[in-house]
Write a protein that binds this DNA or RNA. Sequence first.
DNA 1: TTGAAAGCGCTAACAA
DNA 2: TTGTTAGCGCTTTCAA
Lengths: 342, 342
Amino acid sequence: MNNKNNIKRSRRGSGAITLRDVAKLAGVAPITASRAVNTPEQVSPDVLKKVLDAVQRTGYVPNRIAGGLASSRSRLIAAVVPSTVMSVFMETIESLNASLFDAGYQLMLGQSGYSAAREELLLEAVIGRRPDGIFLTGILPPGKSRTRLLASGIPVVETWDLTPTPIDMLVGFSHSDIGRAVANFLMSRKRKRLALVRADDERAARRAAAFTEAVRARGLPDVFVVNVGDSRSLKSGREAMARIVWEAPDVDAIFCSSDLLALGVVTQARAQGVAVPDRMAVIGFGDVPFLAEMVPALSTVRINGAEIGKQAAHFLIERAQGRPIDPRVLDVGFAIVERDTT
Amino acid sequence: MNNKNNIKRSRRGSGAITLRDVAKLAGVAPITASRAVNTPEQVSPDVLKKVLDAVQRTGYVPNRIAGGLASSRSRLIAAVVPSTVMSVFMETIESLNASLFDAGYQLMLGQSGYSAAREELLLEAVIGRRPDGIFLTGILPPGKSRTRLLASGIPVVETWDLTPTPIDMLVGFSHSDIGRAVANFLMSRKRKRLALVRADDERAARRAAAFTEAVRARGLPDVFVVNVGDSRSLKSGREAMARIVWEAPDVDAIFCSSDLLALGVVTQARAQGVAVPDRMAVIGFGDVPFLAEMVPALSTVRINGAEIGKQAAHFLIERAQGRPIDPRVLDVGFAIVERDTT
DNA sequence: TTGAAAGCGCTAACAA
DNA sequence: TTGTTAGCGCTTTCAA
């Protein structure tokens, strides 16, 4: 009779132990075994014991694919991260993943930032898995992808930014506020000629705009801007600093769009004999952990990436459980961390 | 009649467009629609057009959960990464993910390195998704988890290390070779008193052992070892250097178990007026990109993390398609990159 | 080239 | 508390 089973199963399936096997061994119906495994409080102690026993003996691991199909709840969350600068978001991804895991969810990782065609494919792949939620790094501009996501009905949380028109939920902070705050911070330190070193990045652009605006509002000379393009490397920072020394020698404070650029600026300053912070103040963005312990320790804008991940996870889990989120926007803020370079 | 459908569907399901809807609209059987979408070459041009049309009009996105259940192929690969030092492996994860995506696979991310209990849960969660393959950072020591993985029958690739007894497949390099090579490299540069600064990490321990052994074989004085414990920060590197200056002032070369530690050592050396590389050679491990452009540029051991990801993806995809891999072990090697600090 | 039937392994709905 | 039944949305198998 065992034989008959095997013959029957040989045609299809993975050959792995199923809930049916467990149920048979425990002498109960499959649904009872299911309940014993998933909602033990709904089952008598006697049955519970028999089922768990059978699970032990067979090494049964529930098939979440089948479960997901049956319940329309995949217990999967998709995270979309830009492939080029993943590192900045890692703290967030780690904390997101940890929070999700504790709640019984799995994280699927998608990398954006390639071609538009691949972006389209990524979205297809993501929606095709029917995740219970989608985590987006940044905000999605209006367009085909946004429409598509909206149409899918899957809860979405956008992050690392603020917008009056989120797709759904949002956990982030205001880049304009940062630009303004850093400008005021530097000006309050009696800096008179400010400069920006920034990568080609939409969020950096918004910080820059607010920074420039705040400087202008105080009647100081125009901000000297160095755009380093797509390269966020330390080397670009060095080159930018060399240009500033050459083209705008009166600059006495620089706001960089990333800590790495700032490190490059400081490195070059030392190479050219420009005293930091006496002659030149430098402040970065992102608070890469180890830069706090460099000499000189880098001043920077700290973003609590782990908090973003944690809160985003919370939002997504609540929604996945069918509970509404209100308000749907959370501003986690930022902090200017003053160290040696300002 | 549309109505009847809706009533019928209201009881269960996600309410999304299904293959059946598409098929109905195209006037073909569901299976034909399936073929048009998945294997268009098996279908007449006429039917193909009608089905693709219907897909367009409905915005149909195939449900991969259902597909996975029916075909026993989830097109999912699980990657397990230590949560504490994810950064080192990011290049690998990115390239792994990119390669997988191009082949139509999705990446699921799991974080290890928490408690043993959670490790157990992670394995359950991973196996429960029935991934077509599992990517492991590092090698799995014999134990319950290993047995379990083996029993699951899922293709596994271990990475970043070499062992004579892999679970299944392996893409890595020899840590002993590195320790030996670095020792010989430093000794060939006429360094006479070598030191190690290392984190509490099994792989670093093997590099250290081979390093020590190579030094001893040449009859040089014993290696001075500073173990910084679990902290891999720049700060630990600084403290280690301070200790070396104090306790073993004759040391003239240091091999650090990570670039960050090496950076700390160099930072402290500068602070204490120890000339690098004249008085002290320093070499790191990992080749964090930006350290190449610091002053002084850090010498290091370069691991091609992207290549590991790419090859691991290749191994897993081949196996997922049912093709055998032979040989199942790939040594991607390493390179000593000499820059300013040696 | 197309289709009908029968599941994949699980859970929702309803009934006892 | 336990069980029966009928799917979830897709693909495999077999037949036309």
